[in-house]
Amino acid sequence: MRSSGPILEGALYLLALVCFLLGQEASDDVKLDVLAARSEGTLRVISWNVGGAGGEDGHPLADASIPAVAETLTELGPDLVLLQEMASASQVYALVDALGDGWTFVVGREGGRRLAALSFGGELEPFWSEDRCLGVVLRVGGFGPVSAVGVHADAWSSAERNLTIGSAVDRLMRRDEEGGRVLAGDLNLDVDVDKRSDLFSDDSDRDVWTYNYVATRLEDAARGLGSTAEPDRRLDYLFVDERLAVITAGPWKGRRVNDMDHDPVVADVAPSNTGGTGR
């Protein structure tokens, strides 16, 4: 009896090869080309943890990195920047000096370090400042006033993160500026799919609750657009309310210098009644 075994075996190898080829994805890289993408009538918001990874507990922005940060911000031309991990108020002054004319700013605190809100061409009015949170109202041409809160949540304690982020959301949701609401910053939690967040959190369930507390009220502008921090984690977020439509958003890669470990997260938003396309 002639064996059909080798033919069958060959057919199986061939079938496996076909399956593997069908399973290939052309490219799953999501690259944000914010410089090309910005269109008229949009508000550009940036959140950036500019600290570095060196040392026992990381360190705030190094003075040597100020020119590079200023260059990136100038290139992006944002309406609102929410920075975390500034070393001191005087360093914020130094950064604004490096940025040149037309910038206004407000400084908040996060432990011994500083939060900052900056605007190019707009006016900033603080409405709330407490440890790790800074709330401002942005007034810029073409938009109604926008309320924004910058946050840098605790890196080690999910309970602390929950309190900080929860209170920031509550505070923001009580504002009713006609231009909309923005919450952005380094939330220090990562609930993205296909990651084991429990390796980096003392209570990943609590982080899930915390994230959902925000996400059920505001839209996560850079959702699904990749990691923002080392190692391959999405820790930096930019949320907007329903009055703002996200035109384009995501982490802008390749802008870190020295030992910085976070990418800036950029979002261009427009009033939702102007028919923003979403992401």
Binding site: G5, L8, L12, L15, A16, C19, L22, G23, E25
Partner: peptide
């Protein structure tokens, strides 16, 4: 599309294991 890609990949492994097992058994 993404779902079908992953289904094709996992099927590829299934068929490959099957082919190797059949080779050994034969």
């Amino acid at each position: 599309a993404a779902m079908l890609r992953d289904a094709a990949s996992v099927t590829g492994f299934t068929v490959l294991f099957l082919a190797l097992a059949f080779r050994r058994f034969r």
